[in-house]
Simulated assay, not measured.
Amino acid sequence: MNAEPQHPYQREAFYRRDRRSVRLAREFTRKTLADWSVTARCDDVLLCVSELATNALLHGVPPGRGFRLRLALHTDRVLRVEVHDSGPGEVRTPDAPPESEHGRGLLLVAALADKWGVGERHPGKSMWCEFEDPA
């Protein structure tokens, strides 16, 4: 029987649809990682949080709503970052042309994280990424 990994450390925060929310999500993540003594790959984690939060604000959060950021450190030392939004919209595969000024966020997440993906949520979606052994 395969058991789900336990996550003895978990924190979450809710952010309104506001341009300052990305900065606040990064600050929340930075403090959480410090509290958990996670020191490796912090810059990668913070950049991925910024990109997922920005995507939620630009494409997934309807007016008057917000997004939820959840951080979980599992017993197998995998850090999972999840951003939940309540808006419609599909996530396109990260394939921005080189001359594009937009569309590189998920390319960065795919390059920096060990795993990433999109989960269904009603309403909305959950975008996530994982970092193995970030301690």
Rank of each mutant, 00 (worst) to 15 (best):
R30H: 14
L112Q: 09
H74M: 08
H122G: 00
R104L: 15
F131E: 01
V118R: 14
R20N: 12
K31A: 10
L46Y: 06
G105M: 06
P88R: 10
S50M: 07
F28L: 14
P94F: 05
L57N: 06
G105A: 11
R16H: 10
R80C: 06
P98W: 04
D114Y: 02
E132T: 09
L108Q: 04
C42H: 07
P63R: 12
V49W: 07
A113Q: 11
R20Q: 10
C42M: 11
C42Y: 02
P97Q: 06
P98K: 12
R23T: 05
F14E: 11
R121I: 02
H84Q: 13
V49L: 09
S86M: 04
G87H: 05
T29Y: 03
S50A: 15
R70N: 10
L46D: 05
P94T: 02
R41V: 05
P94S: 05
R23Y: 03
G103E: 11
Q10R: 14
D44P: 01
S126Y: 00
G60Y: 03
G87W: 04
A111Y: 05
V118G: 11
E101H: 08
L58Y: 03
Y9I: 06
P94D: 05
L52C: 12
M127Y: 00
D35I: 02
L79N: 09
H59C: 10
Y9M: 11
P8D: 14
L58H: 12
P8F: 07
R70D: 09
E82D: 13
A53T: 02
R23D: 12
V83G: 12
G117R: 11
A34L: 13
G117K: 09
D133Q: 15
R30S: 14
H59Y: 15
E27Y: 01
L33R: 03
L57M: 13
R23C: 01
A135N: 05
E51C: 03
P97K: 12
D114A: 03
V22L: 02
E99M: 01
D44C: 07
E4S: 14
F67V: 10
A72H: 01
V61N: 03
V22A: 10
K31Q: 14
M127T: 05
W36F: 07
L107R: 07
W116L: 11
P123I: 03
W116F: 15
C48K: 03
G89P: 02
D43C: 02
H102Y: 09
L47W: 02
V83F: 10
V118S: 13
H84Y: 01
C42I: 08
D133C: 04
D85I: 02
A72M: 09
A34W: 08
